[in-house]
Write a protein that binds this DNA or RNA. Structure first.
Lengths: 140, 140
DNA sequence: TTGAAAATGAAATTCAGTTTCAATTAGTTT
DNA sequence: AAACTAATTGAAACTGAATTTCATTTTCAA
């Protein structure tokens, strides 16, 4: 049930596969929203009352370490975690009214970013492009 | 000594010009770094021991309200404030080793951003583009 | 089965950010 | 210039998310 890559990651680090981790990881992989620790905690609670907040928190951190999740913190929001889909980097449009998060990719922007970096003799390791505004449903 | 726009802003809102505000605003305008409340508080303390942290905090918020400063929060960092220079929007390159912040602007990226928004029927109100990596001094 | 190491949940802690409140100050009105 | 009113101040208290602690429980290799 639990993701193979994650189980492999645990083994490689000498960590243990526990019932709680199974539940949390399983839920995280299913829910394909950008969820907060809070969100996942409640979802996990519905499956098993004994799963604590700290465990959810720690499991999400492990998922990030394992490279399966990414931590995002949008302006004025709590930290959210998203599933990393096969090396495909993407950025976000965030609706400031309803909170909807839309992912986008744009190769031409990435190319221009390279140029900007070169101009400043800067070695890029990561970037974050967030566009805030109103989504199609909220703009009128 | 204190910025005219800020004084005007205070009057327009029926707020008062105080010694503390004079000192804090004056320092903020001089220091052209991206400074934290902490930074400014220490600078202000050197000028006048009686200036408290809350006053610095509140004065920075006022500067933002007045449109003279912008609040920025880079990944893993505390909130920083930067002076708004004449309507010129810019983005940032942030060195993950030494913390240096380099500003950049790129019209072509802004244009592409418009396209992305249009494609998703999204009305942009703001954006944030942060590129993390190693600056020229730290990259070797 | 057992023992060592890791994991757990509840509670405590941290830390930046923010608010409260009694005392002080600014600046208008008399 | 004195009085008055509302805004401001600094210290301390509070907030809320994130993180850690710790005694107990669980995993899993030997």
């Amino acid at each position: 049930m639990m993701n193979k890559s994650f189980r492999d990651y645990l083994r490689s680090k000498g960590l243990k596969s526990t019932h709680q981790r199974e539940v949390v990881v399983d839920l995280f992989l299913r829910l394909d929203t950008h969820c907060s620790v809070e969100d996942l905690y409640h979802a996990a609670q519905r499956k098993d009352k004994r799963i604590g907040y700290s465990t959810v928190y720690r499991t999400l951190k492990l998922l990030v370490e394992a490279g399966l999740a990414e931590e995002r913190r949008f302006s004025g929001e709590v930290t959210r975690f998203e599933l990393v889909h096969r090396g495909k980097h993407h950025d976000h449009l965030i609706c400031i009214k309803c909170g909807r998060i839309i992912e986008f990719t744009n190769d031409r922007i990435e190319k221009l970013q390279e140029k900007v970096a070169k101009k400043h003799n800067f070695k890029i390791s990561d970037h974050k492009y967030e566009i805030y505004g109103y989504c199609s449903r909220c703009k009128k």
